[in-house]
Simulated scan of single mutants.
Amino acid sequence: MKVALGSDHGGYELKEEVKRYLEEARIDYKDFGAYSTDSVDYPDIAIPVAEAVSEGKYERGILICGTGIGMSITANKFKGVRAALCHDIFSAKATREHNDSNLLTMGDRVIGKQLALEIVKVWLDTEFHGGRHARRINKIKEIE
């Protein structure tokens, strides 16, 4: 699996923790920035990450900002991207099983590091259930 990873300044520190987890888990990723806590506009990071997922260059994406909301809104503008804002393990698992989400967003100012890493692990490890859920995803694809 290849993961596109990015954050703005508000999510930089958590992104660095996620990078360490991905490296330890031997998951291939590319860091699209930010590369420091210097202020950056979240769309400047969300756009290239969402494009990479939309174009199929990366199977999954993870975006982090202060709340995760701005990243989610931006990413969901791209065809084929199903970005899910998750701040709990149940939602992370459910959005993979039922929504086949391919981009996870989180808020560094909303959740702690340990919970965020657990969410990432569950989200990456959970498979889409297909079946009736695939029918629903196809309805979304029809309007793109």
Rank of each mutant, 00 (worst) to 15 (best):
L14M: 03
V110N: 04
L85Y: 11
G70S: 05
I62V: 04
K93C: 08
D41W: 10
S7N: 02
L22D: 02
N76I: 09
R26D: 14
E127S: 15
A84R: 07
G112R: 07
H129T: 15
Q114G: 14
P43R: 09
D31R: 07
E13F: 09
C86G: 09
I27C: 09
T105I: 06
A50M: 03
V81W: 09
H129Y: 15
P48M: 00
K15A: 02
R135D: 14
F128L: 08
Y58N: 03
D44A: 11
D88C: 07
L14F: 00
E127A: 14
Y58V: 07
K121A: 12
G33V: 11
I69E: 12
D8P: 01
I47D: 11
D38P: 11
A25Y: 06
K57Q: 13
S36G: 11
K113R: 14
A83I: 10
L14N: 01
L63R: 00
G56D: 04
D38R: 15
L124A: 06
C86Y: 08
I69F: 12
K30M: 14
V81K: 09
T126D: 02
Y29A: 08
D8Q: 03
L104N: 00
K139P: 11
R26I: 13
C65Y: 05
E51A: 08
C86T: 09
N76D: 07
G61H: 06
E118Y: 08
D38A: 15
T67M: 07
I137S: 09
L103T: 03
V3R: 01
N102M: 05
I47S: 07
G33L: 11
K19W: 00
H129W: 15
H133W: 10
M71R: 02
L104P: 00
E59W: 06
C65L: 00
G112E: 06
L22S: 04
T67Y: 03
I89Q: 08
I64L: 05
D8W: 01
V53F: 04
D28K: 13
I111A: 05
L63I: 01
A84I: 10
I137T: 08
D38T: 14
L22N: 00
M71D: 06
V49E: 00
M106S: 02
A50E: 07
A50Y: 03
K77Q: 14
A116E: 05
G107N: 00
